[in-house]
Write a protein that binds this DNA or RNA. Structure first.
Lengths: 339, 339
DNA sequence: TTGAAAGCGCTAACAT
DNA sequence: ATGTTAGCGCTTTCAA
C-alpha cells in the first residue's frame, strides 16, 4: 500500500513549497490564480485528501463536537441528535456521540474522553443520576462551549435550551380541569431533576389556581416506564381516594397507566390520561393519548444555532442565553371527557 | 487562560525527558516504579489530560470510527447505534455519527468527511438512493475496516451483518397462510434495495410453496411511510381483486394500512396485516401489530465485534465474514384470524 | 506572490 | 532505566 498524498507531494510535483500549497488549498487570497489552479489540479491528480488531524493539532480546532445523552434509543434524544447533526453539518462540524445510559460515572467519563479527543465543544443532557457537576467545569475552564438541554441544572452557569416545563405541567393540568376532571393525580419520577420538578409545580399551580385541592397521596414518585405506569395506576385506583384523571411523567408511563385502566374496566377517557413527549406511538394506541409535545427537533436546532453563536465569540460565555421553548398541548381521545 | 499541561511540563517538573514521561504514562514496562509513580503524581497535580490528537497523528490511530446511517430518528438505526457505541466504548473507540438522510450525495460526503477525520474504520448502512459504490472503495484502499449492515450491496466485497430477509418475507407470508389468509398482498418500496427484494422473494417463495397464486397487482411498489400504507391499502381494497391480508414493508407502512382498513370497516384481523421491524409502537396500537423483529441490538453488537476483529488483523479483509441473523416472528392481534 | 522554518503534543527507534 | 531526536501533516509568522 502506497503512502497517502500530502501537501509535500503536491509541492514537490510543482516545485513550490508547502506553504504555497497550503495557501492555495485553504483559499488564502494572496496567491496567483495560476498557482492555485495548478495546485488544485495536482491535488486532484494525486487523489489528495487533507488530514484534518494535522490541521486540528496545529490550529487547535477539530471541528468535532461531543454530544452526551442518556440514550439515543429514546425517540426524544434521537430526534434532538438528528437535528443537531443536521444543523451543524453545513458548518463543517461533526458529532461524536456519547451515551451515559443514565449513569453518572459514564457521564463523567464521557466528558473526560471527549475533552481528550479535543472536541471544540460539548452539548449534553444530564443523566438521571447526575447530582454533582464538577466534571463539566473543565469544559468551561478550557473556554469551550458547553450547552445543556432539556435535563439541565442551575448550578451550572451555562447556556441552556429547555422546554417550559412548568408551563407543560400547567397546561396538562388545566386541560384536564377544562375537560371536567376534578381529582387529578400525577405519576412521576423520584429523581430530583429540574424538568420533572417544574412539571409538578405547574400541576400544583394549576390546581390551586382553579381551587382544587392537591391531595399528597395523588402524587406518586417512582420510575418512568410502562410498568411504572401500571403500578402507579393500580395504586391510585385501589386507594380510598381514587382520582378521575392521571398525568403521567412521560408517554411510556401513560401507556402503562392506560393498559392498567383498561384492564380495570376504566378505559380512558372515563379516567382522563395525559402524558409528555408525544412519542410516535401516542397517536396510534387505543384510546389515542393526549400529550404535551416537547419539540425535540426545534430543541436540537436551537442547540446547533447556539453552539455556532458561542464558537464565534472569543468568550463563548459572554452572555449565556437560556432558550425556553413552549410546549404544545396535543389533545386526543384519552382526555376527551364527555360527561 | 493558562496553557494546557503537556508531557513536557511534567518532564520539566521532574527533570526527566518526555520519553520517560510518555513511557510512564503509557504503561511501558522498562520503567522504575519510582519514576512511574512520580510521573503519575505530577500529572495529577498539574491536571494533565492527554491530547489524543497528537497521539493519533503520530500513531495513525484515532480510536474513532465513523457510523453512517440514513437517520438516527428511525428506531431501528437508533438501536443499532446504541449497541455499536456500547460495544466499542470499553475498547476505547468512540463514534462519529453521520446521517445520510437517504441521500447518496450526503453519503458520499460522509465517507469523504470521515476519512479526512482519519477514522479508524467505518460502519454503514446504505441510503435508499445508493446505486453507485465507488465512494466506499477509498476506505478499502486505505486498508481500513468497512462493515455494511442491514442495507448492504453485493457489489461491495466487505463483511456484512444482515438479517435473513428472504426468511423474514417467507415467515411473514407463511404465518398469514397458516392463519387461513389466501389472497396476500405486499406493499413495499420501489427502490432496488437487496433487503426489500429478498423479502419479496421470500413472499413469492412461500406463496408458490403453498400453491397460492401471486397476483402481480397484489404487489404495490411505492414509499415506505404511514401515508404510503394508507394509499396502498386503499388501492388494494378498491381493486377488483381484493386481498384478505396485507404485508407492509415496515411497521410504519403497516400502521397506515391499518388506519385505512379501520376507516373502511375492515379492521384487522378481518384483513390480516403484518409489518417489519417491531417498532416500539407496534405492541400498543389497536389492533396490536404482528411483525418481524429484526434484532437491531444484536445487529449493532455484531457490528462492534466484527470491527474489533478486523482491526486486530494486519489485513482486515483477510476473510470477509457475513453474519446473518435470524428474524423472529412476533404474533399479535392484527393477524389473529379466527374464521 | 512565494519561501523558509518553527512548532502543535506525542511516539518510538536508537543510543547510552 | 533513561535520554536524544526525528518526525506525524499541517499552519503560520517572518522574511524575501
Amino acid at each position: 500500500m502506497k503512502k497517502k498524498t500530502t501537501i509535500y507531494d503536491i509541492a514537490q510535483e510543482l516545485n513550490v513549497t508547502v506553504s504555497t500549497v497550503s495557501r492555495a488549498l485553504s483559499g488564502f487570497p494572496a496567491i496567483s490564480d495560476a498557482t492555485r489552479k495548478a495546485v488544485l489540479e495536482v491535488a486532484k491528480k494525486l487523489n489528495y485528501s487533507p488530514n484534518k488531524l494535522a490541521s486540528a493539532l496545529k490550529s487547535g480546532k477539530t471541528y468535532i463536537i461531543g454530544v452526551i445523552v442518556p440514550s439515543v434509543q429514546a425517540q426524544f434524544f434521537a430526534s434532538i441528535i438528528h437535528s443537531i447533526e443536521d444543523g451543524l453539518k453545513d458548518s463543517g462540524y461533526r458529532i461524536i456521540l456519547y451515551q451515559s445510559n443514565e449513569s453518572i460515572d459514564n457521564e463523567i467519563n464521557g466528558v473526560k474522553t471527549l475533552l481528550e479527543a479535543q472536541v471544540d465543544g460539548i452539548i449534553a443532557s444530564l443523566s438521571l443520576e447526575t447530582s454533582v457537576f464538577e466534571h463539566f467545569n473543565e469544559i468551561i475552564k478550557q473556554n469551550k462551549p458547553l450547552i445543556l438541554f432539556d435535563r439541565v441544572h442551575e448550578s451550572l452557569n451555562v447556556p441552556t435550551v429547555t422546554l417550559d416545563d412548568f408551563e407543560a405541567g400547567y397546561q396538562a393540568t388545566k386541560h384536564l380541569i377544562k375537560q371536567g376532571y376534578k381529582k387529578i393525580a400525577f405519576v412521576t419520577t423520584e429523581h430530583q431533576i429540574k424538568i420533572f420538578d417544574d412539571r409538578l409545580k405547574g400541576y400544583r399551580s394549576a390546581l390551586s389556581k382553579h381551587r382544587l385541592a392537591c391531595a399528597e397521596d395523588h402524587v406518586i414518585f417512582g420510575d418512568l416506564s410502562i410498568s411504572a405506569g401500571q403500578k402507579g395506576a393500580e395504586r391510585l385506583m385501589n386507594s380510598e381516594n381514587t382520582p378521575d384523571a392521571i398525568i403521567a411523567g412521560d408517554d411510556f408511563t401513560a401507556l402503562g397507566v392506560i393498559k392498567k385502566l383498561k384492564e380495570m374496566g376504566k378505559t380512558p377517557p372515563q379516567i382522563g390520561v395525559i402524558g409528555f413527549a408525544n412519542e410516535t406511538f401516542s397517536d396510534y394506541i387505543t384510546p389515542s393519548l393526549s400529550t404535551i409535545d416537547q419539540h425535540p427537533n426545534k430543541m436540537g436546532t436551537a442547540c446547533a444555532e447556539m453552539f455556532l453563536k458561542m464558537i464565534r465569540q472569543e468568550n463563548p460565555y459572554k452572555n449565556t442565553d437560556h432558550i425556553v421553548l413552549s410546549p404544545t398541548l396535543v389533545v386526543r381521545e384519552s382526555t376527551s371527557n364527555t360527561k
